[in-house]
Design a protein around this nucleic acid. Structure first.
Lengths: 112, 112
DNA sequence: CCTCAAAATCGTTATATCGCAATTTACCGA
DNA sequence: TCGGTAAATTGCGATATAACGATTTTGAGG
């Protein structure tokens, strides 16, 4: 049974559902895919995108949506634990949470 | 992109999205999971559930939703190609489309 | 302190989804 | 050809999601 101390390999049903819901939007799905290669898929930024991911402004430009919409997209992905957040100064960087994504994959593979 | 060497192991982006959307509802997600063992998870019916799946009435009872809602759920899953449909007389049986589900798994594993 | 910039949150409108009851369609058996 | 039953479709109200502009919050740097 996955807990904070025990990062299990299986998601709970409600966690699985949350991930599926987060990915059921074309923008959010694309963002998570783009984040596989942030340097290639997003514009230059000060901070190492490979390490910390990309900021809301980069996502906003790539998606061609408003700042509030981009922020909301990332909040949804973060709520589903599919991305992790790093705040540096006035910027918030979002990177893929590969461990959580692997748990999602595992759940899709075995409990679907 | 399905080709001769690679016969449909990957979904197009819109197919992947359709599957994610179909599974982003708790009832539809549960139905697909229940269909892994239709004999155990649904009530008795005339036709071999292992072979043909289960009919709308069985799904309706298991989900405790109306007939029209159950029918709509299955239409959504069928549109996303996650289940296949067999009409026998006045009954429509729904079974998992394991090949399509495997393609979905593969897409989640590699393109997510 | 003040100002600027980035991001989060709020408030709103438009659209989509959910789930139902009612109806229609499809198919069976008498 | 008529009922009866299963499922699909239609139409609807309630709720949820999408996306935006405006505002507030957060932090950097004078």
């Amino acid at each position: 049974m996955p807990t904070d101390e025990n990062p299990g390999t299986q998601l709970q049903q409600d966690e699985l559902l949350a991930a599926l819901r987060a990915l059921s939007n074309p923008h959010r799905l694309a963002i998570l895919q783009w984040l596989r290669d942030p340097v290639k898929n997003f514009e230059e930024q000060k901070v190492d995108a490979t390490r910390y991911g990309v900021c809301v402004s980069s996502i906003r430009k790539r998606c061609e949506v408003s700042q509030s919409t981009a922020s909301q997209f990332m909040a949804t992905l973060a709520d589903a634990d599919l991305v992790q957040t790093t705040r540096i100064g006035q910027w918030t960087y979002f990177a893929r949470n590969e461990a959580a994504i692997d748990r999602f994959r595992s759940s899709v593979a075995t409990s679907l």
